[in-house]
Design a protein around this nucleic acid. Structure first.
Length: 226
DNA sequence: TCATTAAATTGTT
DNA sequence: AACAATTTAATGA
């Protein structure tokens, strides 16, 4: 079976393969395939039936929809080590959103057939999936709350915290490659506001700003920032 | 390895 | 939104 070394390293960092039996893991790994996307590539189109569960090895994905007047707006971002699209696999209906790579990105895909096969036979996989969905739900609820109650700096903090979510993105590296522009899209504020927000957060020793990257120094404080 | 250049990103108005 | 400054990545001697 011919997964790249990158893919194997990536899978070792993921949680769900660990809950499978040896046999299930082998079958699953055999079905996985890899894609490399250039900046701006649409990986999932709106209205199409989802055909795979998508893991981000490197890069960054933007999940977006468009408003009535045609302006795209970002729903969330997917950082490396995150998986997206399970919601569209659990039902058979057209996607309501589209997914775009915001930079060169490597993805790993688990085909729908294999995904369903795991759901049908593995209780541990179902437990993983429930937990995964629950964490994502909590994330969206948190986002809605912050949008209504707190100012832009807190929302930026919320956005950063969500990308460092230990369950959704079990990343080993402390630094995340995300530009301030990507953060701005994600949180729904201007890039200028993100710029000033990250400087405020840096002064408070909560994060460190890098060129095209953010390092979280105190995840606990970032997640609760008001 | 170093210097040069282009591209990306940040910082500021 | 526009512009300048800065950092990185790529290229070639």
């Amino acid at each position: 079976m011919s997964l790249s070394k990158d893919a194997n390293d990536f899978l070792e960092r993921c949680v769900w393969p660990r809950v499978l039996t040896q046999m299930e893991r082998e079958t699953t790994y055999h079905a996985l395939y890899q894609r490399e996307l250039q900046t701006g590539t649409l990986i999932c189109h709106r209205q199409e039936i989802a055909d795979s569960w998508i893991g981000v090895m490197t890069g960054f994905l933007r999940v977006q929809d468009t408003t009535a007047d045609g302006k795209p707006f970002m729903l969330t971002g997917v950082a490396p080590s995150g998986w997206i699209g399970e919601g569209s696999l659990l039902k058979i209906e057209p996607r309501r959103y589209e997914i775009v790579a915001t930079r060169p990105t490597k993805t790993l895909h688990l085909p729908r057939a294999t995904f369903s096969w795991l759901l049908d036979r593995s209780i541990p996989f179902n437990h993983f999936m429930l937990n995964h969905l629950n964490e994502r739900l909590a994330q969206f609820i948190g986002m809605a709350k912050y949008d209504r109650l707190f100012g832009p700096t807190a929302r930026v903090a919320r956005g950063i915290a969500s990308l460092f979510h230990p369950v959704l993105y079990p990343n080993s590296e402390p630094a995340l490659r995300v530009s301030q522009e990507e953060l701005a899209w994600m949180v729904g504020v201007s890039r200028q506001r993100v710029n000033s927000a990250v400087h405020t957060l840096q002064e408070e020793q909560l994060i460190r700003i890098g060129y095209g990257s953010i390092t979280v120094l105190d995840l606990q404080a970032i997640a609760q920032y008001v």
